[in-house]
């Protein structure tokens, strides 16, 4: 098994994780914005039940609107969100803009615990794959 470059379990404390809302408050495919440590975060629950958290600021316009975008899925299974401003499409797992790979949204770890959705540390710097695994791993907590 690959090693996850993620914080030690002991480090996943209340201080690193912010409770944001109830899972049932999230409507499939329709995002919400949340303030996490002063930063605007776009939070999505997709049709398959999975959770994604990325930065809410659209890097192409500077407006805080990503949470109002339309989610999607490419044929290879990549989950996406399209900014409502100029319709740029971002990979929800990595934050990368599909048509401009040098631009990316911050990606946050997110988990569901006893009906509450928690947004965790910024994991953008972690490798793409690990970010995805981190999200999955922590959802199971």
């Amino acid at each position: 098994m690959e090693t996850l470059d993620m914080p030690e379990t002991s480090e996943i404390t209340e201080a690193l994780w912010t409770p944001v809302c109830k899972y049932t408050e999230l409507e499939p495919g329709r995002g919400v914005a949340a303030l996490v440590g002063g930063a605007p975060v776009a939070l999505f629950r997709l049709g398959d039940g999975s959770l994604h958290a990325v930065g809410n600021l659209d890097p192409f316009s500077g407006a805080s609107v990503i949470s109002r975008g339309i989610t999607g899925m490419r044929a290879d299974g990549t989950a996406t969100v399209a900014s409502p401003m100029y319709k740029d499409v971002f990979d929800l797992a990595t934050g990368v803009a599909l048509d401009a790979p040098e631009v990316r949204l911050p990606v946050y770890a997110v988990r569901r615990h006893r009906g509450t959705v928690w947004v965790g540390p910024d994991v953008t710097s972690v490798s793409d794959k690990d970010a995805e695994l981190l999200t999955m791993a922590t959802s199971a907590v």
Binding site: T18, P19, V20, C21, E25, R30, V32, A33, A34, L35, P40, L43, L57, G62, A63, S64
Partner: peptide
């Protein structure tokens, strides 16, 4: 759905 932030409904959006 019109809350600015789900966890801070009355906070203004600082980018506007």
């Amino acid at each position: 759905r019109f809350a600015t932030f789900v966890n801070a409904p009355d906070a203004p959006d600082p980018t506007v």
